[in-house]
């Protein structure tokens, strides 16, 4: 099964999004990471790297990020991973909350990393005000 890492400037936001997504797939490995080392708003590449490694035994890891430096710090975290794991990790261009919910559903269905990523990215086009 594909695992998911939720990366936000705020640990609270990441944990809240994890909670919502987890409801859609209780067995999906989901990790929330956010904030700086001393608890301020921001992102920490070393903490992101550890979060990815903590679910590195899955069939791939999808990374969802919020804004700005979260993207760059996540790319740096990916660069620091072992080659073998690096190949099974992908950063996706999806809205963090909607993307996480859709990804949890897809991962629970046993879909591949590429399928989960595509579905999460398509969540950006979902019509909310039906």
């Amino acid at each position: 099964m594909v695992g998911i890492v939720i990366i936000s400037h705020s640990l609270k936001a990441a944990e809240g999004i994890k909670e919502i997504a987890q409801q859609m797939g209780r067995e999906v490995p989901i990790v929330a990471v956010g904030g700086t080392e001393d608890g301020d708003l921001g992102t920490d590449p070393l903490a992101i790297k550890e979060a990815i490694e903590s679910i590195g035994e899955t069939d791939g890891v999808l990374l969802l990020v919020d804004l700005g430096s979260a993207v760059m710090n996540t790319q740096l975290a990916i660069d620091m991973l072992q080659d073998e794991l690096q190949k099974r990790v992908v950063l996706c261009n999806a809205p963090i909350l909607e993307g996480a919910v859709v990804a949890a559903v897809e991962a629970a269905m046993g879909h591949t990393l590429a399928q989960v990523k595509r579905a999460a990215e398509e969540a950006g086009q979902m019509e909310k005000l039906l």
Partner: peptide
């Protein structure tokens, strides 16, 4: 810097 900055300056000056 990479571990402590928190914003985009961390990975940039870290690099």
């Amino acid at each position: 810097l990479i571990s402590a900055v928190g914003g985009a300056a961390g990975p940039l000056y870290g690099t």
